[in-house]
Nucleic acid binder design. Structure first.
Lengths: 333, 333
DNA sequence: AATCTTTTTGAAAGCGCTCCCATAGCTGAA
DNA sequence: TTCAGCTATGGGAGCGCTTTCAAAAAGATT
């Protein structure tokens, strides 16, 4: 089933069918009707591959994320997709599960698809990959990772400041023995949050700080972290999590261990995913505007007509503290 | 950057480069090395569109789901993807948000991509679309929807039986005033669950049954449903949810209304998503093996060499009851 | 050294589309 | 009637690849 079949049936040339389908150039309305009829009757759908190949254009964007299971990433994907659909673009995602191996494979696959733009929302970027991307001839947006590179726009979230606000808030509530729960320590944007925590603790309550890193970014990871902390003998009055998704597991495990939140322990997350309003207790967190980020990504990857494509830029976003039920005054002596 | 550039640099023909890249045909090892070197130096990635166009083959599968935000769908996607990657296939997903409009657009987009196979995990299928898919010349799998069609494999979950087990279990605990919470009533597989509930109630405890349908498949939807039920004056001792994802909101709202679970009200979900072990209390549900379903989808879409492609078949899966903390004996008088 | 194999390579024809360029209708003015 | 000036169409090259077919190169055999 191809253009020629349609052309034959409508008794026109393939050029005309193409014109009708793309709504470009002049076509007599009677001819157009005939073509559309043939298209419908044959249940024809243009071969996208041939289209991109011939036209050199592509209305699909690529997006690579670390963990689609974490609602944070999913939300960004959905926001980008919504914006894309509004402009008749499509988005194809790839998930890496924080595995560098997969990252590479995904990026290469994406490059093979020759997308109109590529968004990298991953924590495990490597400098060499950044170089490769800068060399690829398409617009690239990266999320909060690595140094600024020519041809690559960087959307940054001020995690440091967010963590600082959070730590200060807990400190003001009287908390001194705090623990930090994270995953995949070594990765850029994640280590920023951890470092920020460690620095704050050093400044606020020297020598009292505990950091756990587990292998998975999930509630199960959060649960495991709590077990580790308690097994070590450390009894924090507050636990700060690298994100909300892990905090869900932290809340659950604390309860399993007979500790009440926020009575015995305060818990904070990060991201403000929608589930944060459904946990018991609801979760104190820092809001990161995924909606806005998704939109920003689209605007960067598909620059509006007229406005020239920036070579590279940097966008900074500030997290906003959202206080809910999971945090309260420190009651420990 | 194309095959010819590589060929020129390696001083061979494009045919040879192609042979090396696809690992077919005989190529002298010294030549192969030269080609690979050129590929590396140019950072070349084959144009997938040209590949599919020329080769007529495609190693990517399409998948359309109703709500990627619901972990149930995401799990199936991830299972399918894992299996696909194992066989060097890729998966591209499209999300419909239960909107027929989007469904159509997604399917057409997929057809344009000429995937090796298409999996439809959507509740909002229409017969006409089924016909169109049966006519398309690719393997199609649909999840639990519509009548069996030639050329289309149907993976069915015995929701009716699952709901029956669940209702009977609650009945045995003494519950009589039960409510059902769902969304998008009219859609096939969803209405099965509802109908099953209604039928069971009719058999077990005639005239005491309450059904709410809200617009979104999400915790927020679950919350809204509880508000509606309570606003109506009905005081159920058990709430059965169409899935776990909505049950999360139900649990939260019941607590907000001062009702304890399972003390005052028992709650059940369906699917056994991993979050069901992290809610407070943990959620009684029915397990649906997403892992297995993902695998099954792959095997159906990409039939192994040798085994002939079945024209159409039907696969049936039985849910398994998972009793956790959210259900208990009815204490009401 | 001549001939026959076998291995290795290249030339070129598509794959299904877009888009440029040329041609064919048509309208109305001269 | 003729021709400029449109509007509508068709022809065909080319997008980057795979794949067949044939030819060249390299060994093997006598």
């Amino acid at each position: 089933m191809n253009l020629e079949d349609v052309a034959k049936r409508a008794k026109v040339s393939t050029a005309t069918v193409s014109r009708v389908l793309n709504d470009v150039g002049l076509v007599k309305s009677s001819t157009r009707a005939r073509v559309l009829k043939a298209v419908r009757e044959l249940n024809y759908h243009p071969n996208l591959h041939a289209r991109t190949l011939a036209g050199g254009k592509n209305r699909t964007l690529g997006m690579v994320v670390s963990n689609l299971e974490n609602p944070f990433f999913l939300d960004i994907f959905r926001a980008l997709e919504a914006e894309a659909h509004r402009h008749k673009y499509e988005v194809v995602v790839a998930n890496t599960d924080y595995r560098p191996q997969r990252l590479l494979a995904s990026v290469h696959n994406m490059m093979g698809r020759r997308p109109a733009g590529l968004a990298m929302i991953v924590s495990e970027m490597e400098p060499s990959l950044m170089d490769e991307l800068a060399g690829a001839n398409i617009p690239v947006v990266v999320y909060d990772v690595g140094a600024t590179k020519p041809n690559i726009t960087n959307i940054r979230v001020n995690y440091g400041k967010g963590m600082e606000k959070m730590a200060r808030y807990l400190h003001d509530l009287g908390h001194r023995r705090m623990a930090f729960v994270g995953h995949h320590t070594s990765l850029g944007p994640l280590s920023v949050r951890k470092k920020s925590f460690v620095d704050m603790m050093a400044a606020l309550t020297p020598e009292i700080e505990f950091t756990t890193m587990v292998e998975t970014d999930s509630p199960a990871g959060g649960r495991q972290a709590v077990r580790r902390i308690l097994a070590s003998g450390f009894r924090p009055t507050a636990v700060m999590c690298v994100n909300d998704y892990m905090a869900i597991g932290v809340l659950r495990e604390l309860r399993d261990q007979g500790l009440s939140v926020p009575g015995d322990v305060s818990v904070t997350g990060f991201d403000n995913i929608s589930l944060a309003e459904f946990t018991i207790p609801t979760l104190t967190t820092a809001h990161i505007p995924r909606e806005k980020i998704g939109k920003l990504i689209f605007e960067t990857l598909v620059p509006e007509q007229g406005r020239g494509t920036e070579t590279s830029q940097e966008i900074l976003i500030d997290p906003v503290l959202m206080v809910r039920e999971s945090t309260g005054p420190c009651k420990a002596n």
